[in-house]
Design a protein around this nucleic acid. Sequence first.
DNA 1: GGTAAGCCTGTACCTGGGTACCGGATGCAA
DNA 2: TTGCATCCGGTACCCAGGTACAGGCTTACC
Lengths: 145, 145
Amino acid sequence: MSGLRTGEVAERAGVNIQTLRYYERRGLLSEPGRSLGGHRIYPPDTVALLQVIKAAQRLGFSLDEVAELLDAGRRRHPTADLRQRAIDKISEIDRKIADLTAIRSTLTEVVDARCDSLTNCTCADCPLPYLTIGTSSHDQNGGRG
Amino acid sequence: MSGLRTGEVAERAGVNIQTLRYYERRGLLSEPGRSLGGHRIYPPDTVALLQVIKAAQRLGFSLDEVAELLDAGRRRHPTADLRQRAIDKISEIDRKIADLTAIRSTLTEVVDARCDSLTNCTCADCPLPYLTIGTSSHDQNGGRG
DNA sequence: GGTAAGCCTGTACCTGGGTACCGGATGCAA
DNA sequence: TTGCATCCGGTACCCAGGTACAGGCTTACC
């Protein structure tokens, strides 16, 4: 009886049903109970757990990291490890913000100078030839989102 | 004679050879001439073009967007101008920075409050229940990337 | 008991930006 | 002419984070 079906959990947490099974495969959700016919029956707090997962993702943690954190949290290891990860994440975010800020100022120059072409810009003092910003190695992913 | 081979272009531009062919498929590089035996022979300014592409990527443009921009620039159409796109890109970047800043401050709270678990944090005034930031709909990708 | 909605597993596909591998053909210098 | 480096096209694979579909079973409601 008490427990939610896949569709209910998905709807309440605002995720796709497939995502629930995906998270189960990835180890973020433990395998729920089953009905006699084999349908999953989730404990009601699964919805809250999903919200935690989504929040952690928004904090910049990958699913692997979230899985580890949840696991560490469940086993109650004296893991001040979350703190350290948060600290690391903060520097990562700082780097991203710095990159974006550099990119932003170049874009501003492009706008101010009224550049009209990437390759053949005719504007005076065109900043485009100097777009060597963001070449730093700390972010292999470039500035992409 | 005049013209560069695949490997030379790749090396000078600092990209993988496969990437050249990939860009050709994607329409970022137009099909180069060929030797009698069918090997590609690139005009020397291809290297500069690749640098432009990489710079635009660092500015946050996707390859599709770069392709369009190059095309628009080549055809000198007054449409789809670089300037407007740059303006749009700037607001996009501003949103990302705002999200990252919000995430950063929450992480700072996590660190300051000495949270020890994502789901069962025992610290006083735990900020984790308030991790509803970044739920705005303008960035489906969250703050990740 | 009928029927429609919901769920099951398994597998394939998507995005974006590439990268790797294969067997065979070419290019170039000695 | 030999021999090695390079290049060819085609295809498959990588990452993360999902999403979709097919064919069949279960559940819920009337």
